[in-house]
Structure formats: C-alpha cells, structure tokens
C-alpha cells in the first residue's frame, strides 16, 4: 500500500463541517466516482451491465438512485456518474470497466468533484440563493447540473438532504458561497 496521504478538496486532512442555523454543510471527501457512458449501439447492453452492478436500473433522465452498495445519477444522454464509498471501492473505475466491458466508456472522476452534503430543514431557502433549480418543488431522487456562483455543479436531492458536487479546484470558492448564502438565508 502506498503512503501518499490524501488531502480533502478544502485542503485539510480532515473533512470540514459547518452548522449555520438549522443547516449543516459537510465536506464528504471519501467518495469514489466514475463516469460511465454507453458506447454507440451498446446503450441497452450498458444499461443491463449497470443494472447487474448497481442492483437497480440505471437512473432515468435527471434522476438519482441508490443501490445496495453503489449509487448513480444521470449526467447526460446515456451517461451516468457512479458513486461509492472510497474505502470499499478505491478501484471503482476499474471495476466498472470490467463489468461494462466494451459496452461503455468509463472514466475515473474520483478526484474531479468535491462533494458537500447539506442536511437540515428548509434547504430550499438556502439553495434559492445559489442556483436556479426549483428545489422546493423537486422530488427526492432528482439530479441536475446547474450554475452555482459561475460553476457548473451537480445538485442531487435525496430523502435526507442535498448532495452538491463542485469542480474540486473551486471547492473553496463554492464552500465560501455556501456559508455566505447560509448566513444570509438562515440565521
């Protein structure tokens, strides 16, 4: 096992968590991510492979779903992001490649996105200061990409809160925006 020590997207060894009013904003660094895009003509076969792996059908357009171990969200036509705990799935992309074989193109995205988990009541009141998505009326299980503070971010609404994915290099800027908006909206 190599001895390079990972750093979180916010540049620390431990993930950061802030509670502002009723909302908690936590950095979630230990997430393995990989994108899967069906090859041309292999769309059905790719979906079959994903279903076998996830234990659930690959999410529909703009949807998010969790299987027993892995979860997935739609990112584009015939394209998904697969998500798993990093500790148990450090080689997520390789596993996907071996499962999907030549039905899909797989790309490791683990380091590409910083994830922030938002929990607490009235998250839409915070999110309405950040992005144009109508989160108050969006049912859980939806995943959309939109602009937050000039950055293309994935916003996932699930039963217990919101997952936010920002380009990793801009994690500090997004985190700052989250805290500022939370102060304005919630305190």
């Amino acid at each position: 096992m190599h001895d390079l020590t990972p750093l979180t997207a916010l540049g620390a060894s431990k993930p950061r968590s802030d509670t502002i009013g009723p909302v908690t904003i936590s950095e979630a660094p230990d997430v393995a991510l990989a994108s899967v895009t069906a090859r041309l003509g292999q769309e059905a076969a790719c979906q079959d492979a994903l279903r076998a792996l996830l234990g659930i059908p690959a999410p529909d357009i703009a949807a998010y779903a969790s299987g027993p171990q892995l979860s997935a969200f739609w990112i584009g036509p015939d394209s998904w992001m697969i998500m798993a705990p990093y500790d148990t799935h450090p080689g997520l992309a390789n596993r996907l490649t071996s499962v999907c074989k030549d039905t899909a193109s797989v790309t490791d995205q683990t380091g590409a996105w910083a994830r922030f988990d938002l929990t607490g009541p009235d998250l839409p009141r915070l999110m309405e200061r950040l992005c144009n998505l109508d989160l108050a009326h969006m049912p859980p299980g939806r995943a959309r990409r939109s602009v937050i503070d000039h950055l293309g971010c994935y916003v996932i609404k699930h039963q217990d809160g919101i997952l936010l994915f920002a380009p990793r290099s801009a994690a500090q800027s997004l985190h700052h925006a989250l805290l500022t908006a939370a102060q304005a909206a919630l305190r």
Partner: peptide, 15 residues
C-alpha cells in the same frame, strides 16, 4: 453523430 466516441473532462481528476 454516428462516430462511436465519448468525451468527458478529466482536468480536475488528476494532479
């Protein structure tokens, strides 16, 4: 449109 090619940015994934 019928070329079998998939694109995705990985700028952020690698140091």
């Amino acid at each position: 449109p019928d070329m079998d090619v998939q694109l995705i940015s990985t700028t952020e994934a690698w140091a």
